[in-house]
């Protein structure tokens, strides 16, 4: 993977970086395995530096999310398996991850899996006591839902209930 001696170094680098992205797109989130870490929007960059080292930047979703360490290990394992030996994985705190970075594909997968995706874009304004947005039930599509708990099974989720089909469900918080 020596880019400098390649006939067309720019093209060569682009190809390698594309392959890295392809690998990352298949690394599942350990807590929501239908989502890949790329769907979740936590891969900040994936590039080949001048020394031929693959550099991957990951943003943690929540400061204390226990999945962060697992994701890091999964990324290293997946890239090794794909033949990338020289790797460096960095935590990128800033800019802070936001649920706005979940891709359209990621939102679709969440809904199909039974988790309501974030109901609105995260505004930068400081609003503590704004009314909660209407959350759509991932099972029947009704907006007649109510919050059971602000927190759920993982740091990124809250707990809701549909008052039409009566099913409880997880809601991915706006963050």
């Amino acid at each position: 993977m020596d880019v400098s001696t390649a006939k067309d170094p720019i093209l060569m680098r682009a190809r390698i970086e594309c392959r890295v992205w392809e690998v990352l797109q298949r690394v599942p989130d350990p807590e929501i395995p239908v989502l890949s870490i790329a769907d979740l929007g936590i891969v900040r960059y994936a590039r080949l530096d001048d020394e031929g080292v693959v550099q991957v930047g990951l943003s943690p979703t929540y400061s204390g999310c226990p999945a962060t360490a697992v994701i890091r290990e999964s990324v290293i394992a997946a890239l090794r398996k794909a033949g990338f030996e020289r790797l460096s994985v960095q935590d990128v705190l800033s800019p802070a991850w936001t649920s706005d970075w979940i891709t359209a594909e990621g939102r679709r997968k969440l809904r199909e899996y039974g988790i309501a995706p974030p109901a609105e874009s995260v505004s930068s304004v400081r609003e503590i006591w704004r009314p909660a947005p209407a959350v759509e039930c991932p099972r029947c599509g009704s907006h007649d839902t109510e919050k059971i708990s602000e927190f759920g099974s993982t740091p990124c989720k809250a707990h809701y209930r549909c008052t039409r089909c009566l099913e409880p469900f997880d809601y991915f918080k706006c963050h």
Binding site: P60, Y62, S63, L93, I148, S149, F151, P155
Partner: peptide, 21 residues
Amino acid sequence: ALEEDLGLANVGLDLLGQARL
């Protein structure tokens, strides 16, 4: 209650994450 148990644990987890950094 289960909901508050989860809530307080989750707040604690965020705080622990901040403390670690």
